[in-house]
Design a protein around this nucleic acid. Structure first.
Lengths: 351, 351
DNA sequence: GCACACTGTGGGAGCGCTCCCACGACTTGT
DNA sequence: ACAAGTCGTGGGAGCGCTCCCACAGTGTGC
C-alpha cells in the first residue's frame, strides 16, 4: 500500500506541502527556512501550499535534525515566591517574554525553587536545572539573580552554553555577557535630587552588602555626596537589606545615630516603606522634616503615604536586551558584551 | 567504517548506554521509560550505564517518536504588562511553576501581549498563540484571564487539546475543566465580618459586570446581606472595575448616593485603595466612620493607610491545581472537573 | 570548442527515540 | 508428553525534519 501523503490527519508535514506544491521536500524545506537558493516560481508555489495546509514546521523533528532546540531558558535562581513578588523580577520576565515573542524562539521558565519538603537552599532544584540546561535541551540561557557562590554560571560556561546574565555578576572573572541597570547612576540621581532641594544632612539605608546592586547604589550615593563636597559620615549610613523589615530596622538605627537627618536615600521601595513608617512613628513628616527617595519604582511606590519619589530601572528593557544579546550569540557572535542601561528619577511627593 | 558508538562526543545516546550495559536499545528504552517488563539484572546494568554516561533522554527524539512534547503551555490572554503587575496572575504563575517543577513536564509561557506597534487588541498575538498551540507543540494548555468573547478556548477544545482554565469561564456551555477561587464565599465572608462588627448600612464597590469574578463577588455580598435580613438598596451598590481609578469613581458615587454608609466591600484591593482616598478626602475616618474590606490580599493591601482587611484567594494553590488537573487529563482521564478553592478573610486595620 | 563555474533541484541518509512484531526460554495445564 | 501461554529480549521501521551530495541546465572564460 502506498500511503497517500495528501490524505493524512493531524498537522501537515513537509512531504504533503511538497506534494501539493509539486516540488520536492528539499525545496519546501529551503523555502521554509528562508534559504535564498530557490526560484521565485517554486517559492510562490510552496508558499501557497503552506498557506492552504496551514503547515507549521514540527519543532521536534527540526530540533532532532539540527541539534538545536529553538528554546531558551530563563533561569531565576530564587524560590518561586520571590520571583513574582518582586517587581524587579516581574519586570524582567515581562521584558524577556515580550522580546522572545518577537522571535521564533520558545521560552522555558525555570525557577530553582526551594522545595518546601526539606530542601531549604534549593540544591536539588539547582542540580535539576543544571542538568537540564547542560543536557542540550535549550540553545541558551538567561540567568537572573545569581548569588556570589552559585556554581551554575561557571558550569554552563564550561558546557559551552550561550549565556547572558541579568545584573552585573559578583567577581569579574567570569567570561560571560551581562546586562545591568545603572544602579550607581540612579543613586547619584536620587542624591542629587535631595541636594538640589537644599537637603544637607542626607543619610542612606543601603541594601545588603553582599549584593552588587546594593553596593553600586551605595557607591553612587557616596559619589554624589563627595561631588557636592559633603562626604557622608558613617553614622548616616545604615545597612539594610531591600526588605521592608530591613528598611524599618535600618531607618530606626539611622534616626538614632543621626537625629538631624533631613533626607534619606533608601536602596529599595520596600525598604523605603519601612522607613516611612519609622519616620511617621518618630513624629517626622515626609517630606517636610525628612525627604525620602526609594529605588525600583515598584507598584507600592505610587500608593505609599506619601507617594514615593523613586528611581526607576528599565526592567523591561533589560529583559529585552538580554534576549537580544543571547540571540546575537546564538547567531554566532562570540563577543562578550556588558551593557548598563540608564535609570531614571520619578518624582512624587516624598522628596 | 563502522561507527564506534562508545566514542562519540556530546550527550550520550540510548545506543551508547545499550552498548555499555550489554543489552539492546529496546531494553534501555524500557528501563528509562519505566516499563515493568525488564529483568532485574538488565535493569541494574542499564541503570549503572546511565549513571556512568550521564545519559539524559533526548526530548526532541522522544517527542518525534511519541508525538508528545512533554511541554504544557501557560497562556495568559493579556498584555505582558498586566500579567506581572497583578498579584493575581503572578501568584497563579508561581503556583503553576512550582507544580510543573514537580513533574517532568516543561512549561512554556505564552502571553498574547498587545503589540505596542499597532495591534492594540492583541489579535496578532492571539492568532500566533492559537497556531502554536493547535500545531501540536504542546501536550496541553492552561488558560488564564479569558474574556467572554475569546475564541481561543473553543478553538483548542475543537483541536482536541487538553485544557484547564483558570477562573470560571463565562457561559457554561464550554466542555472544559476549570479551577476558580470561591469569590462568592469570599465576598460573603467580608460582608459577614462587617455585619459582625455592627455595621448596618453596608455598601459595595463592584467589579466590572462583564467579568465573572466581579459578578460572583457581588452575588456573595447580596447573599450575606439577604441572610442577615438586610437586602441592599440599589443606591448602596456602585459599579467599579477592579482598578484604582474605577474604585475612586465608584466610591465617590456611592458616598453621594448613600452618605450614611458605614461599611463597604470593595471588589479588589486596588479599587479599595481608590475608595480609601475618596473617604479620606470626604473627611471620613477608616475604620471608625466607614469600614473597608478589599479583595485579593495583594501586596498593596498591607501597606495601605490603614492596612486593608481583605479576602485572600489561594492563588498558588489554584495554579498548582490547574497543573494537576491538566496532568490527569494527559494521563488519559477524560472527566471534566470544576474546582472551587476556598478564600479566606485577612483582618487588618481597615475593618 | 571544451573545461569550468554556479544555480536550482531532488533524493538519500540520519538525527535519537519509541513502538511493534518476532523469537527463544521458561512456565503451566491437560 | 505436547500445545498454549507468559516473560524478557532484540531488531526493524518510522516519526518529520535538515543536511549533504549528485545532477541537469545555463552561463562564462579561454
Amino acid at each position: 500500500m502506498t500511503p497517500d501523503p495528501s490524505a493524512r490527519s493531524g498537522p501537515a508535514t513537509l512531504e504533503q506541502v511538497a506534494a501539493l506544491a509539486g516540488v520536492s521536500r528539499s525545496t519546501v524545506s529551503r523555502v521554509v527556512t528562508g534559504s535564498p537558493r530557490v526560484s521565485d516560481a517554486a517559492r510562490r508555489a510552496v508558499e501557497a501550499a503552506v498557506a492552504e495546509l496551514g503547515y507549521v514546521p514540527n519543532r521536534a523533528a527540526r530540533s532532532l535534525a539540527t541539534r538545536r532546540t529553538g528554546t531558551i531558558a530563563l533561569v531565576v535562581a530564587e524560590p518561586e515566591t520571590r520571583v513574582f513578588d518582586e517587581p524587579f523580577f516581574a519586570g524582567i520576565v515581562r521584558g524577556v517574554g515580550a522580546a522572545v515573542g518577537r522571535t521564533d524562539l520558545q521560552l522555558a521558565l525555570l525557577m530553582t525553587g526551594s522545595d518546601p519538603d526539606g530542601d531549604p537552599d534549593g540544591a536539588h532544584g539547582r542540580a535539576r536545572v543544571g542538568g537540564y540546561l547542560a543536557g542540550g535541551h535549550v540553545d541558551g540561557a538567561l540567568l537572573l539573580s545569581l548569588h556570589a557562590d552559585d556554581p551554575l554560571p561557571r558550569r554552563l560556561v564550561d558546557a559551552g552554553l550561550p549565556l547572558v546574565i541579568g545584573g552585573r555578576p559578583d567577581g569579574a572573572d567570569l567570561a560571560v555577557s551581562w546586562v545591568d541597570a545603572d544602579n550607581r547612576g540612579g543613586a547619584r540621581l536620587a542624591t542629587e535630587h535631595l541636594l538640589a532641594q537644599g537637603r544637607r544632612r542626607i543619610g542612606i539605608v543601603t541594601g545588603p552588602p553582599d549584593m552588587v546592586a546594593g553596593r553600586d547604589r551605595l557607591a553612587g550615593f557616596r559619589e554624589a555626596m563627595a561631588a557636592a563636597d559633603r562626604p557622608t559620615p558613617p553614622e548616616r549610613e545604615a545597612v539594610g537589606d531591600f526588605t521592608r523589615d530591613g528598611g524599618e530596622r535600618a531607618m530606626a538605627r539611622l534616626l538614632a545615630q543621626a537625629p538631624d537627618v533631613d533626607g534619606v536615600v533608601v536602596a529599595s521601595d520596600l525598604a523605603a516603606l519601612g522607613a516611612l513608617q519609622v519616620l511617621a512613628g518618630a513624629g517626622r513628616t515626609v517630606p517636610d522634616d525628612v525627604a525620602v527617595v526609594g529605588f525600583d519604582d515598584s507598584l507600592v511606590a505610587a500608593s505609599a503615604q506619601p507617594p514615593l519619589t523613586t528611581v526607576r530601572q528599565p526592567v523591561e528593557a533589560m529583559g529585552a536586551r538580554m534576549v537580544e544579546l543571547l540571540c546575537a550569540q546564538l547567531q554566532g557572535e562570540h563577543m562578550l558584551r556588558h551593557e548598563v542601561l540608564p535609570t531614571e528619577l520619578v518624582v512624587r511627593a516624598s522628596a
